[in-house]
Design a protein around this nucleic acid. Structure first.
Lengths: 208, 208
DNA sequence: AATTAATACGAACGATCGTACGATTAGTTC
DNA sequence: GAACTAATCGTACGATCGTTCGTATTAATT
Protein backbone atom coordinates (compact mmCIF):
# COMPACT_ATOMS: atom_id res chain seq x y z
CA UNK A 1 0.00 0.00 0.00
CA UNK A 2 1.37 3.39 -0.97
CA UNK A 3 -1.52 5.20 0.64
CA UNK A 4 0.11 7.49 3.20
CA UNK A 5 -2.86 7.14 5.55
CA UNK A 6 -2.51 3.36 5.47
CA UNK A 7 1.24 3.60 6.06
CA UNK A 8 0.83 6.03 8.91
CA UNK A 9 -1.90 3.98 10.53
CA UNK A 10 -1.31 0.69 12.26
CA UNK A 11 -3.58 -1.85 10.58
CA UNK A 12 -4.26 -3.60 13.87
CA UNK A 13 -5.42 -0.42 15.51
CA UNK A 14 -7.43 0.53 12.44
CA UNK A 15 -9.21 -2.79 12.57
CA UNK A 16 -10.03 -2.14 16.21
CA UNK A 17 -11.28 1.35 15.44
CA UNK A 18 -13.58 0.02 12.76
CA UNK A 19 -15.03 -2.54 15.11
CA UNK A 20 -15.45 0.14 17.70
CA UNK A 21 -17.21 2.39 15.24
CA UNK A 22 -19.57 -0.38 14.16
CA UNK A 23 -20.39 -1.15 17.77
CA UNK A 24 -21.13 2.46 18.61
CA UNK A 25 -23.17 3.00 15.49
CA UNK A 26 -25.42 0.13 16.51
CA UNK A 27 -25.35 1.21 20.17
CA UNK A 28 -26.66 4.72 19.53
CA UNK A 29 -29.49 3.41 17.35
CA UNK A 30 -30.41 0.80 19.90
CA UNK A 31 -30.17 3.24 22.82
CA UNK A 32 -32.47 5.73 21.11
CA UNK A 33 -35.21 3.10 21.26
CA UNK A 34 -34.41 0.92 24.26
CA UNK A 35 -32.43 3.38 26.33
CA UNK A 36 -28.82 3.20 27.46
CA UNK A 37 -29.72 0.42 29.87
CA UNK A 38 -31.33 -1.54 27.08
CA UNK A 39 -28.02 -1.68 25.24
CA UNK A 40 -26.55 -4.92 26.57
CA UNK A 41 -23.16 -6.20 25.59
CA UNK A 42 -24.45 -9.63 24.68
CA UNK A 43 -27.19 -8.29 22.47
CA UNK A 44 -24.84 -5.91 20.72
CA UNK A 45 -22.35 -8.71 20.10
CA UNK A 46 -25.01 -11.05 18.72
CA UNK A 47 -26.40 -8.44 16.33
CA UNK A 48 -22.92 -7.60 15.04
CA UNK A 49 -21.82 -11.24 14.91
CA UNK A 50 -18.79 -10.69 17.07
CA UNK A 51 -17.85 -12.22 20.39
CA UNK A 52 -19.18 -10.79 23.61
CA UNK A 53 -15.76 -10.76 25.23
CA UNK A 54 -14.15 -9.15 22.20
CA UNK A 55 -16.69 -6.36 22.24
CA UNK A 56 -16.34 -5.93 25.98
CA UNK A 57 -12.54 -5.59 25.68
CA UNK A 58 -13.01 -2.42 23.65
CA UNK A 59 -14.61 -0.59 26.53
CA UNK A 60 -13.64 -2.36 29.74
CA UNK A 61 -16.99 -1.77 31.42
CA UNK A 62 -20.63 -1.20 30.66
CA UNK A 63 -20.40 2.35 31.95
CA UNK A 64 -17.51 3.16 29.61
CA UNK A 65 -19.54 1.77 26.72
CA UNK A 66 -22.40 4.07 27.71
CA UNK A 67 -20.10 7.09 27.85
CA UNK A 68 -18.62 6.20 24.46
CA UNK A 69 -22.15 5.84 23.10
CA UNK A 70 -23.00 9.32 24.34
CA UNK A 71 -19.89 10.75 22.68
CA UNK A 72 -20.78 9.00 19.42
CA UNK A 73 -24.33 10.34 19.53
CA UNK A 74 -23.04 13.83 20.23
CA UNK A 75 -20.86 13.64 17.13
CA UNK A 76 -23.81 12.54 15.01
CA UNK A 77 -26.01 15.30 16.42
CA UNK A 78 -23.29 17.87 15.91
CA UNK A 79 -22.81 16.83 12.31
CA UNK A 80 -26.54 16.79 11.60
CA UNK A 81 -27.64 19.97 13.35
CA UNK A 82 -24.88 22.16 14.74
CA UNK A 83 -22.32 22.18 11.93
CA UNK A 84 -24.80 23.07 9.16
CA UNK A 85 -26.24 25.86 11.30
CA UNK A 86 -22.79 27.25 11.99
CA UNK A 87 -22.28 27.68 8.26
CA UNK A 88 -25.17 30.12 8.23
CA UNK A 89 -24.68 33.77 9.21
CA UNK A 90 -24.97 34.51 12.91
CA UNK A 91 -28.27 35.78 14.23
CA UNK A 92 -31.82 34.91 13.40
CA UNK A 93 -30.89 32.91 10.30
CA UNK A 94 -28.60 30.66 12.32
CA UNK A 95 -31.21 30.33 15.04
CA UNK A 96 -33.77 29.18 12.50
CA UNK A 97 -31.23 26.77 11.06
CA UNK A 98 -30.67 25.28 14.51
CA UNK A 99 -34.38 24.84 15.18
CA UNK A 100 -35.28 23.61 11.70
CA UNK A 101 -32.22 21.38 11.70
CA UNK A 102 -33.26 19.88 15.01
CA UNK A 103 -36.76 19.16 13.75
CA UNK A 104 -35.37 17.56 10.59
CA UNK A 105 -32.89 15.53 12.67
CA UNK A 106 -35.68 14.37 14.96
CA UNK A 107 -38.47 13.78 12.44
CA UNK A 108 -36.06 12.32 9.88
CA UNK A 109 -35.12 9.72 12.48
CA UNK A 110 -31.37 10.15 12.39
CA UNK A 111 -31.84 7.71 15.25
CA UNK A 112 -34.67 5.19 14.90
CA UNK A 113 -36.02 6.09 18.34
CA UNK A 114 -36.03 9.82 17.68
CA UNK A 115 -33.59 12.09 19.47
CA UNK A 116 -30.99 9.99 21.29
CA UNK A 117 -30.51 12.65 23.94
CA UNK A 118 -34.18 13.09 24.72
CA UNK A 119 -34.37 9.37 25.40
CA UNK A 120 -31.14 9.05 27.38
CA UNK A 121 -31.45 12.25 29.36
CA UNK A 122 -34.90 11.38 30.63
CA UNK A 123 -33.55 7.95 31.50
CA UNK A 124 -30.75 9.32 33.66
CA UNK A 125 -32.22 12.62 34.83
CA UNK A 126 -32.84 11.25 38.34
CA UNK A 127 -29.85 8.89 38.48
CA UNK A 128 -26.59 10.53 39.60
CA UNK A 129 -23.32 9.29 38.17
CA UNK A 130 -20.91 9.81 35.32
CA UNK A 131 -23.55 8.99 32.70
CA UNK A 132 -25.86 11.66 34.09
CA UNK A 133 -22.99 14.14 34.13
CA UNK A 134 -22.12 13.46 30.51
CA UNK A 135 -25.72 13.94 29.47
CA UNK A 136 -26.04 17.10 31.54
CA UNK A 137 -22.96 18.51 29.81
CA UNK A 138 -24.48 17.90 26.38
CA UNK A 139 -27.80 19.44 27.44
CA UNK A 140 -26.14 22.54 28.84
CA UNK A 141 -23.99 22.80 25.76
CA UNK A 142 -27.07 22.73 23.55
CA UNK A 143 -29.02 25.26 25.60
CA UNK A 144 -25.97 27.54 25.75
CA UNK A 145 -25.61 27.35 21.99
CA UNK A 146 -29.25 28.28 21.34
CA UNK A 147 -29.07 31.00 23.95
CA UNK A 148 -25.85 32.46 22.53
CA UNK A 149 -27.34 32.43 19.05
CA UNK A 150 -30.35 34.38 20.32
CA UNK A 151 -28.02 36.86 21.97
CA UNK A 152 -26.23 37.38 18.68
CA UNK A 153 -29.54 38.00 16.96
CA UNK A 154 -30.39 40.53 19.64
CA UNK A 155 -27.09 42.31 19.22
CA UNK A 156 -27.73 42.41 15.48
CA UNK A 157 -31.05 44.10 16.15
CA UNK A 158 -33.01 41.17 14.76
CA UNK A 159 -34.89 40.50 17.97
CA UNK A 160 -36.17 42.91 20.57
CA UNK A 161 -33.64 44.20 23.08
CA UNK A 162 -35.68 43.13 26.09
CA UNK A 163 -35.71 39.45 25.12
CA UNK A 164 -34.29 37.06 27.73
CA UNK A 165 -32.16 34.72 25.64
CA UNK A 166 -32.04 31.86 28.15
CA UNK A 167 -35.77 32.04 28.73
CA UNK A 168 -36.50 32.01 25.02
CA UNK A 169 -34.06 29.16 24.48
CA UNK A 170 -35.85 27.23 27.20
CA UNK A 171 -39.22 27.67 25.52
CA UNK A 172 -38.03 26.85 22.02
CA UNK A 173 -36.27 23.71 23.20
CA UNK A 174 -39.38 22.63 25.06
CA UNK A 175 -41.38 22.71 21.82
CA UNK A 176 -38.83 20.54 20.07
CA UNK A 177 -38.59 17.88 22.72
CA UNK A 178 -42.34 17.59 23.07
CA UNK A 179 -42.79 16.96 19.37
CA UNK A 180 -40.02 14.38 19.33
CA UNK A 181 -41.58 12.35 22.11
CA UNK A 182 -45.19 12.55 20.97
CA UNK A 183 -44.44 11.76 17.36
CA UNK A 184 -42.92 8.49 18.57
CA UNK A 185 -45.64 7.82 21.10
CA UNK A 186 -48.43 8.36 18.60
CA UNK A 187 -46.62 7.01 15.57
CA UNK A 188 -47.60 10.17 13.74
CA UNK A 189 -45.44 13.04 12.53
CA UNK A 190 -48.36 15.48 12.68
CA UNK A 191 -47.32 16.77 16.09
CA UNK A 192 -44.25 18.37 14.52
CA UNK A 193 -46.70 20.89 13.06
CA UNK A 194 -47.48 21.96 16.61
CA UNK A 195 -43.79 22.47 17.27
CA UNK A 196 -43.27 24.41 14.05
CA UNK A 197 -46.29 26.61 14.74
CA UNK A 198 -45.07 27.29 18.27
CA UNK A 199 -41.56 28.14 17.07
CA UNK A 200 -42.88 30.41 14.31
CA UNK A 201 -45.22 32.25 16.64
CA UNK A 202 -42.56 32.67 19.30
CA UNK A 203 -39.95 33.97 16.84
CA UNK A 204 -42.50 36.33 15.28
CA UNK A 205 -43.36 37.66 18.72
CA UNK A 206 -39.76 38.53 19.59
CA UNK A 207 -38.79 39.94 16.20
CA UNK A 208 -37.96 43.62 16.17
CA UNK B 1 -72.76 -15.09 49.99
CA UNK B 2 -73.14 -12.38 47.37
CA UNK B 3 -73.34 -9.66 49.99
CA UNK B 4 -70.85 -7.01 48.80
CA UNK B 5 -70.18 -5.97 52.41
CA UNK B 6 -69.17 -9.51 53.29
CA UNK B 7 -66.88 -9.61 50.30
CA UNK B 8 -65.39 -6.29 51.27
CA UNK B 9 -64.63 -7.48 54.77
CA UNK B 10 -63.06 -10.75 53.69
CA UNK B 11 -59.79 -10.61 55.60
CA UNK B 12 -57.95 -12.69 53.05
CA UNK B 13 -58.79 -10.45 50.14
CA UNK B 14 -58.19 -7.35 52.20
CA UNK B 15 -54.78 -8.63 53.15
CA UNK B 16 -54.02 -9.22 49.49
CA UNK B 17 -55.22 -5.76 48.54
CA UNK B 18 -52.98 -4.20 51.13
CA UNK B 19 -49.98 -6.10 49.87
CA UNK B 20 -50.87 -5.10 46.36
CA UNK B 21 -51.15 -1.46 47.37
CA UNK B 22 -47.81 -1.55 49.16
CA UNK B 23 -46.17 -3.12 46.12
CA UNK B 24 -47.58 -0.54 43.74
CA UNK B 25 -46.71 2.39 45.96
CA UNK B 26 -43.10 1.26 45.94
CA UNK B 27 -43.27 0.43 42.25
CA UNK B 28 -44.39 3.90 41.15
CA UNK B 29 -41.69 5.58 43.23
CA UNK B 30 -39.04 3.25 41.90
CA UNK B 31 -40.25 3.57 38.32
CA UNK B 32 -40.16 7.36 38.46
CA UNK B 33 -36.40 7.10 39.01
CA UNK B 34 -35.30 3.85 37.36
CA UNK B 35 -38.03 3.51 34.77
CA UNK B 36 -40.62 0.79 34.36
CA UNK B 37 -37.92 -1.61 33.23
CA UNK B 38 -35.89 -0.85 36.33
CA UNK B 39 -38.71 -2.13 38.52
CA UNK B 40 -37.78 -5.78 38.89
CA UNK B 41 -39.85 -8.26 40.80
CA UNK B 42 -36.94 -9.50 42.87
CA UNK B 43 -35.85 -6.03 43.88
CA UNK B 44 -39.40 -5.04 44.80
CA UNK B 45 -39.81 -8.19 46.90
CA UNK B 46 -36.53 -7.67 48.72
CA UNK B 47 -37.30 -4.05 49.57
CA UNK B 48 -40.74 -4.97 50.88
CA UNK B 49 -39.51 -8.10 52.69
CA UNK B 50 -41.92 -10.41 50.94
CA UNK B 51 -41.28 -13.41 48.75
CA UNK B 52 -40.62 -12.96 45.08
CA UNK B 53 -43.11 -15.65 44.12
CA UNK B 54 -45.76 -14.19 46.40
CA UNK B 55 -45.37 -10.79 44.81
CA UNK B 56 -45.37 -12.27 41.34
CA UNK B 57 -48.63 -14.12 42.02
CA UNK B 58 -50.42 -10.81 42.45
CA UNK B 59 -49.79 -9.80 38.87
CA UNK B 60 -49.06 -12.94 36.87
CA UNK B 61 -46.50 -11.28 34.63
CA UNK B 62 -44.05 -8.44 34.52
CA UNK B 63 -46.13 -6.65 31.94
CA UNK B 64 -49.25 -6.81 34.11
CA UNK B 65 -47.24 -5.36 36.99
CA UNK B 66 -46.20 -2.51 34.73
CA UNK B 67 -49.78 -1.85 33.67
CA UNK B 68 -50.92 -1.90 37.29
CA UNK B 69 -48.12 0.51 38.15
CA UNK B 70 -49.31 2.89 35.45
CA UNK B 71 -52.86 2.73 36.80
CA UNK B 72 -51.61 3.42 40.32
CA UNK B 73 -49.56 6.39 39.13
CA UNK B 74 -52.55 7.73 37.24
CA UNK B 75 -54.61 7.62 40.41
CA UNK B 76 -51.94 9.51 42.34
CA UNK B 77 -51.63 12.10 39.59
CA UNK B 78 -55.38 12.48 39.37
CA UNK B 79 -55.67 13.00 43.11
CA UNK B 80 -52.79 15.47 43.20
CA UNK B 81 -53.56 17.56 40.13
CA UNK B 82 -56.83 16.86 38.36
CA UNK B 83 -59.29 16.53 41.26
CA UNK B 84 -58.24 19.79 42.99
CA UNK B 85 -58.45 21.65 39.70
CA UNK B 86 -61.90 20.28 39.01
CA UNK B 87 -63.11 21.84 42.24
CA UNK B 88 -62.26 25.25 40.79
CA UNK B 89 -64.67 27.05 38.46
CA UNK B 90 -64.33 26.15 34.80
CA UNK B 91 -62.27 28.44 32.63
CA UNK B 92 -59.06 30.29 33.20
CA UNK B 93 -59.08 29.67 36.95
CA UNK B 94 -59.25 25.94 36.42
CA UNK B 95 -56.58 26.11 33.74
CA UNK B 96 -54.24 27.89 36.12
CA UNK B 97 -55.05 25.34 38.80
CA UNK B 98 -54.10 22.52 36.42
CA UNK B 99 -50.80 24.14 35.47
CA UNK B 100 -49.87 25.28 38.96
CA UNK B 101 -50.99 21.95 40.35
CA UNK B 102 -48.79 20.14 37.87
CA UNK B 103 -45.77 22.25 38.78
CA UNK B 104 -46.39 21.64 42.48
CA UNK B 105 -46.84 17.92 41.84
CA UNK B 106 -43.62 17.79 39.87
CA UNK B 107 -41.44 20.09 41.95
CA UNK B 108 -42.85 18.72 45.21
CA UNK B 109 -41.67 15.29 44.11
CA UNK B 110 -44.91 13.42 44.58
CA UNK B 111 -42.67 10.81 42.97
CA UNK B 112 -39.00 10.88 43.93
CA UNK B 113 -37.95 10.85 40.27
CA UNK B 114 -40.26 13.72 39.30
CA UNK B 115 -43.27 13.09 37.09
CA UNK B 116 -43.81 9.36 36.72
CA UNK B 117 -45.38 9.79 33.31
CA UNK B 118 -42.63 11.92 31.88
CA UNK B 119 -40.17 9.19 32.81
CA UNK B 120 -42.24 6.23 31.66
CA UNK B 121 -43.60 7.79 28.48
CA UNK B 122 -40.16 8.68 27.19
CA UNK B 123 -39.08 5.16 28.07
CA UNK B 124 -41.79 3.54 25.97
CA UNK B 125 -42.40 6.18 23.31
CA UNK B 126 -40.59 4.13 20.66
CA UNK B 127 -41.54 0.69 21.95
CA UNK B 128 -44.94 -0.58 20.75
CA UNK B 129 -47.02 -2.75 23.03
CA UNK B 130 -49.66 -2.62 25.72
CA UNK B 131 -47.47 -0.53 28.02
CA UNK B 132 -47.00 2.08 25.33
CA UNK B 133 -50.74 2.08 24.66
CA UNK B 134 -51.56 2.62 28.31
CA UNK B 135 -49.13 5.53 28.52
CA UNK B 136 -50.45 7.01 25.30
CA UNK B 137 -53.96 6.89 26.70
CA UNK B 138 -52.91 8.81 29.80
CA UNK B 139 -51.03 11.38 27.72
CA UNK B 140 -53.97 11.95 25.41
CA UNK B 141 -56.30 12.15 28.38
CA UNK B 142 -54.13 14.86 29.93
CA UNK B 143 -53.78 16.87 26.72
CA UNK B 144 -57.50 16.58 26.09
CA UNK B 145 -58.24 17.82 29.60
CA UNK B 146 -56.01 20.89 29.25
CA UNK B 147 -57.38 21.53 25.80
CA UNK B 148 -60.99 21.25 26.93
CA UNK B 149 -60.32 23.57 29.83
CA UNK B 150 -58.88 26.15 27.45
CA UNK B 151 -61.96 25.80 25.26
CA UNK B 152 -64.17 26.47 28.26
CA UNK B 153 -62.17 29.59 29.04
CA UNK B 154 -62.59 30.70 25.46
CA UNK B 155 -66.34 30.14 25.58
CA UNK B 156 -66.44 32.15 28.79
CA UNK B 157 -64.72 35.01 26.98
CA UNK B 158 -61.62 34.74 29.17
CA UNK B 159 -59.27 34.03 26.29
CA UNK B 160 -59.29 35.36 22.78
CA UNK B 161 -61.70 33.69 20.36
CA UNK B 162 -58.98 32.91 17.81
CA UNK B 163 -56.94 30.79 20.23
CA UNK B 164 -56.26 27.23 19.09
CA UNK B 165 -56.87 25.23 22.26
CA UNK B 166 -54.91 22.15 21.23
CA UNK B 167 -51.96 24.23 20.09
CA UNK B 168 -51.91 26.19 23.33
CA UNK B 169 -52.25 23.01 25.36
CA UNK B 170 -49.29 21.59 23.48
CA UNK B 171 -47.13 24.60 24.30
CA UNK B 172 -48.10 24.80 27.95
CA UNK B 173 -47.47 21.11 28.48
CA UNK B 174 -44.08 21.43 26.81
CA UNK B 175 -43.02 24.03 29.38
CA UNK B 176 -44.01 21.76 32.24
CA UNK B 177 -42.24 18.66 31.03
CA UNK B 178 -39.05 20.53 30.27
CA UNK B 179 -38.86 21.94 33.79
CA UNK B 180 -39.54 18.54 35.31
CA UNK B 181 -36.68 16.88 33.44
CA UNK B 182 -34.11 19.63 33.85
CA UNK B 183 -34.78 20.16 37.53
CA UNK B 184 -33.87 16.51 38.04
CA UNK B 185 -30.94 16.57 35.66
CA UNK B 186 -29.41 19.66 37.26
CA UNK B 187 -30.49 18.94 40.81
CA UNK B 188 -31.86 22.45 40.98
CA UNK B 189 -35.45 23.67 41.16
CA UNK B 190 -34.56 27.02 39.57
CA UNK B 191 -35.64 25.84 36.12
CA UNK B 192 -39.25 25.80 37.32
CA UNK B 193 -39.01 29.60 37.20
CA UNK B 194 -38.51 29.30 33.45
CA UNK B 195 -41.65 27.19 33.19
CA UNK B 196 -43.67 29.57 35.33
CA UNK B 197 -42.47 32.57 33.35
CA UNK B 198 -43.33 30.85 30.08
CA UNK B 199 -46.79 29.85 31.32
CA UNK B 200 -47.48 33.35 32.64
CA UNK B 201 -46.38 35.03 29.44
CA UNK B 202 -48.37 32.64 27.29
CA UNK B 203 -51.54 33.03 29.32
CA UNK B 204 -51.16 36.79 29.34
CA UNK B 205 -50.76 36.77 25.57
CA UNK B 206 -54.00 34.89 24.96
CA UNK B 207 -56.11 36.71 27.56
CA UNK B 208 -58.95 38.75 26.16
C1' DA C 1 11.20 -16.69 9.73
C1' DA C 2 10.91 -15.25 14.49
C1' DT C 3 9.29 -12.00 17.81
C1' DT C 4 6.23 -8.59 19.50
C1' DA C 5 1.82 -6.21 19.98
C1' DA C 6 -3.06 -5.58 19.27
C1' DT C 7 -7.52 -7.54 18.46
C1' DA C 8 -10.78 -11.26 18.76
C1' DC C 9 -12.40 -15.43 20.75
C1' DG C 10 -14.38 -19.38 23.88
C1' DA C 11 -15.54 -20.83 28.16
C1' DA C 12 -16.82 -19.96 32.51
C1' DC C 13 -18.01 -17.18 36.87
C1' DG C 14 -21.66 -15.43 40.15
C1' DA C 15 -25.70 -12.62 40.05
C1' DT C 16 -30.12 -11.57 38.66
C1' DC C 17 -33.91 -11.79 35.55
C1' DG C 18 -39.06 -13.53 34.71
C1' DT C 19 -41.62 -17.45 35.49
C1' DA C 20 -43.55 -22.14 37.16
C1' DC C 21 -45.22 -25.22 40.71
C1' DG C 22 -46.11 -27.62 44.78
C1' DA C 23 -46.37 -26.85 49.78
C1' DT C 24 -47.74 -23.95 53.62
C1' DT C 25 -50.20 -20.52 56.11
C1' DA C 26 -54.16 -17.57 57.18
C1' DG C 27 -58.99 -16.73 56.97
C1' DT C 28 -64.05 -18.16 55.77
C1' DT C 29 -67.86 -21.27 55.60
C1' DC C 30 -70.00 -25.35 56.60
C1' DG D 1 -64.10 -29.63 64.25
C1' DA D 2 -63.48 -30.44 58.66
C1' DA D 3 -63.60 -28.49 54.06
C1' DC D 4 -62.62 -24.91 51.30
C1' DT D 5 -60.39 -20.61 49.49
C1' DA D 6 -57.00 -17.01 48.95
C1' DA D 7 -52.51 -15.30 49.96
C1' DT D 8 -47.86 -16.37 50.71
C1' DC D 9 -43.76 -19.04 50.47
C1' DG D 10 -39.52 -22.06 49.01
C1' DT D 11 -37.33 -23.94 45.47
C1' DA D 12 -35.95 -24.43 41.05
C1' DC D 13 -35.71 -23.62 36.01
C1' DG D 14 -33.52 -21.60 31.76
C1' DA D 15 -31.96 -17.19 30.05
C1' DT D 16 -29.25 -13.29 30.25
C1' DC D 17 -26.54 -9.95 32.65
C1' DG D 18 -21.48 -7.78 33.31
C1' DT D 19 -17.06 -9.43 33.90
C1' DT D 20 -12.66 -12.38 34.02
C1' DC D 21 -9.06 -15.03 31.95
C1' DG D 22 -6.41 -17.91 29.09
C1' DT D 23 -5.87 -18.74 24.18
C1' DA D 24 -5.96 -17.97 19.26
C1' DT D 25 -5.61 -14.91 15.42
C1' DT D 26 -3.87 -11.08 12.89
C1' DA D 27 -0.67 -7.35 11.78
C1' DA D 28 3.81 -4.88 12.54
C1' DT D 29 8.64 -5.16 13.64
C1' DT D 30 13.02 -7.30 13.43
Amino acid sequence: MSDPAAVATDGRIRRGDETRRAVLRRAVDLASVEGLDGVTIGRLATELSISKSGLFAHFGSKEELQLATIRAARAIFSHAVVVPAMEKPAGIVRLRALLDGWLAYSSGRAFPGGCFFSRATHEYAARPGTVQEALRDVDQEWLALVSATIDEARELGEVRADVDARQLAYELDAYLDSANMRSLLNGDLAVYDNARAAVDARLAAVAS
